[in-house]
Design a protein around this nucleic acid. Structure first.
Length: 679
DNA sequence: GAGCACTGC
């Protein structure tokens, strides 16, 4: 490892590791082998680092309204604090908000085990979309979105005596919205306690944010740090920058492999392309190793979000005897997926982030250096079973220049849904809302303009009745909500329900990446394709699926994801229920694609483009140059003159996704307030 | 000829 110089992330822990008990540490996505299975649960709970702080935490919760809890993953905060509060006979419910579904569910199951109760009982339960508890459990784990939805009917959260916001350092969109809302709620409910759990050292910022500075000059928030159960991780930096981090990551992995160090390797790269390249290079070497009969064999797995579920599961298996596992992953492995047994981390130092560009109304996927917090989070993926090592493919000087934290999602996203939500929650003046980090004014303004064009708010910025209120109910992009609400009048609500539901899942097609099946998948897809575009093609897939009586076989034969289709059915059922509640008739267009498309235009009209004589598409608002995504059914047929699209993503070019062919006069007919004809 | 990662009654 001559290119690297070692540096310690933190001084070695002074605690003896012999007593460490991995089992008590709840992993959100994987299970962990419990080698202390014979120990009583009570003993296991007492071993957690947080146990020493039990009484202090309860004391601080009496004294302060908000407790900022800094603790690394695995210190037990998410599972233990709610139990401490129940043991101390706190009244009402204790709610814990997680950014991910799996986390909410697995934490609830873990606590149910510990207290010897059934999950979804009166003492412990969880609520995530499409899988909710119907009682009011004493301890309730939920996703952030669920609590926000609960706020719509119970603005002061009267049934709760305490809420814990977990993983706040991730600063998801909903975390920031909840933080802003809580600042208001805490003022009105002096008896409600808030625990803000974060893994990074942004505690001072959080404490100041939640200090309401009430009477008697007494602060209302305080900080407590809890030691984690992490083993030390040695950090190595490059002494000189490398020209290509993909190649460097492969070289480093092979160097680790030829060294004496045991343990699996996790490589962080930025995208599918890089992951595939590195995987290919490593597999070539793996074959060489096999042929030369060397001892140090490796087994390589790619890991990213668009990999079929079945392939994703492979990375959790432990390597065969005499093999070392190397996982090449995107950022999915930073928070969403925990791979057991990792000892070595290779960190390229970059990430792809979605960033909304308000000038062009498009999302960009941009390559950025990661933050220090992110680099440490990646490093922390090693050192969970024994001490680990992280190889950073950048210099120490470079690390020092990295930003402390990644910009929160709320400052880099399209805000139309957020503002509709806040308005529905009674926040009249969005500019005065207590965002922990204020999104750019331009983004707020642009979102208000779109909501006004959709008739969700009036000229004074007030939510319209009933349209605006009804739109907020859906938890959909406001454009889609509008389309759904119009679909009764257009006489095509059956079809619109299907289309919108399909647009809520990432993709309904499975995409084989290698072999004959790549061609086969394309041929099968052709069977569903229509010249009207992607959305009506989806409609055909859905009809086929229903006609097959929702058979797994139909999906398999046609390269359609059964898992996605099942979810589409769930979402569709939910949306249909909301529509029926509003008295909107559920009727079919009986084959008239024109009705369906006009209904789509009635909400998607801001996303219209025309074919310029130069052969590229241009938006009408803003004259932005757009291209058809190669995934679209319109990619291979003659280019239509006018289209609407659901999304634009800037990667190599600006690509429109989910495109539908329209007639230009429909824009004038259905959105006369938005478009007018020159000449 | 192309795809960071989550989520919602």
């Amino acid at each position: 490892m001559s290119d690297f110089k070692p540096k310690f992330l933190r001084p070695s822990n002074t605690v003896s590791y012999l007593d460490k008990n991995e089992s008590t540490f709840v992993d959100t996505t994987t299970f962990v082998y419990n080698k202390y299975v014979s120990q009583s649960i009570e003993t296991q709970r007492r071993r957690l680092p947080i146990f020493d702080n039990r009484n202090h935490i309860l004391f601080l919760l009496e004294k302060y309204q908000t407790l900022i809890l800094v603790g690394e993953t695995g210190c037990g905060k998410s599972t233990q604090i709610p139990q401490y509060m129940v043991e101390a006979e706190w009244p009402g419910q204790i709610g814990i908000c997680e950014p991910r579904r799996v986390a909410a569910i697995s934490l609830a199951n873990r606590v149910a085990d510990e207290i010897g109760a059934l999950v979804q009982s009166d003492s412990i339960g969880y609520a995530v979309r499409f899988d909710a508890c119907y009682n009011k459990p004493k301890i309730k784990y939920m996703t952030e979105g669920i609590l926000i939805r609960e706020l719509m009917t119970d603005p002061l959260l009267k049934s709760y005596s305490a809420i814990m916001l977990d993983e706040v350092h991730e600063r998801t969109l909903y975390t920031d919205i909840l933080m802003g809302l809580f600042k208001k709620i805490l003022k009105k409910r002096n008896d409600l306690k808030l625990i803000v759990a974060s893994a990074t050292l942004d505690a001072k910022f959080l404490k100041d944010f939640f200090n309401l500075g009430c009477q008697n000059n007494k602060e209302t928030s305080t900080i407590l740090s809890v030691e984690g159960r992490q083993f030390p991780v040695d950090i190595f930096y490059l002494s000189d920058p490398v020209p290509c981090y993909v190649q460097a990551s492969v070289d480093t992995a092979l160097k680790i492999n030829s060294s004496k160090e045991p343990g699996d390797i996790l490589i962080f790269l930025t995208g599918v392309d890089e992951v595939d390249r590195a995987t290919r290079l490593l597999i070539e070497h793996a074959n060489n190793i096999e042929e030369s009969g060397q001892k140090k064999k490796i087994i390589v797995y790619p890991m990213h979000g668009s990999l079929p579920y079945h392939d994703q599961l492979k990375v959790f298996k432990s390597a065969p005897d005499n093999h070392r596992k190397i996982v090449v992953a995107t950022n999915i492995a930073e928070t969403s997926v925990t791979i057991p047994g990792i000892v070595h981390i290779i960190d390229c130092g970059f990430v792809k982030l979605r960033w909304y560009n308000v000038e062009t109304h498009t999302d960009s996927l941009i390559l950025l250096p990661i933050s220090k917090a992110s680099a440490n989070q990646r490093a922390g993926r090693a050192g969970r079973l024994r001490s680990g090592k992280v190889y950073r493919l950048y210099t120490e000087e470079y690390f020092d220049k990295m930003p402390d934290s990644t910009p929160p999602e709320i400052v880099r996203t399209n805000l139309t849904s957020v503002i509709l939500l806040l308005k529905a929650l009674g926040i009249r003046n969005i500019l005065n809302f207590n965002f922990p980090n204020r999104p750019p004014i331009k983004n707020l303004k642009s979102a208000l303009e779109i909501l006004y064009a959709l008739d969700a708010i009036d000229i004074n910025g007030e939510l319209t009745k009933p349209l605006g209120f009804n739109m907020a109910e859906f938890a959909l992009d406001p454009m889609f909500a509008k389309i759904l609400l119009n679909s009764g009048e257009f006489g095509c609500s059956e079809e619109i329900l299907t289309i919108i539901s399909i647009l809520q899942v990432e993709t309904i097609f499975t995409k084989p990446s290698t072999g004959n099946s790549v061609i086969k998948a394309r041929i099968q897809k052709r069977l569903f394709e229509v010249e009207e575009g992607d959305l009506l093609t989806y409609l055909n897939v859905y009809s086929g699926f229903i006609q097959s009586e929702m058979s797994n076989e139909f999906c398999h034969k046609n390269f359609i994801s059964y898992k996605s289709m099942k979810r589409v059915l769930e979402i569709r059922k939910r949306l249909e229920k909301v529509l029926k509640n509003y008295g909107i008739p559920i009727i079919s267009a009986s084959g008239s694609s024109q009705l369906i498309i006009k209904c789509l235009v009635s909400g998607l009209f801001p996303n219209a483009a025309y074919l310029h004589y130069t052969g590229v598409y241009k938006t009408i608002r803003g004259d932005i140059e757009l291209h058809i995504n190669p995934d679209s059914v319109l990619y291979t047929i003659p280019q239509p003159q006018w289209v609407i699209f659901c999304e634009v993503m800037h990667t190599k070019k600006l690509y429109m996704k989910d495109i539908t062919v329209i007639k230009d006069e429909w824009l004038l007919e259905l959105a006369p307030h938005f478009y007018y004809k020159t000449s």
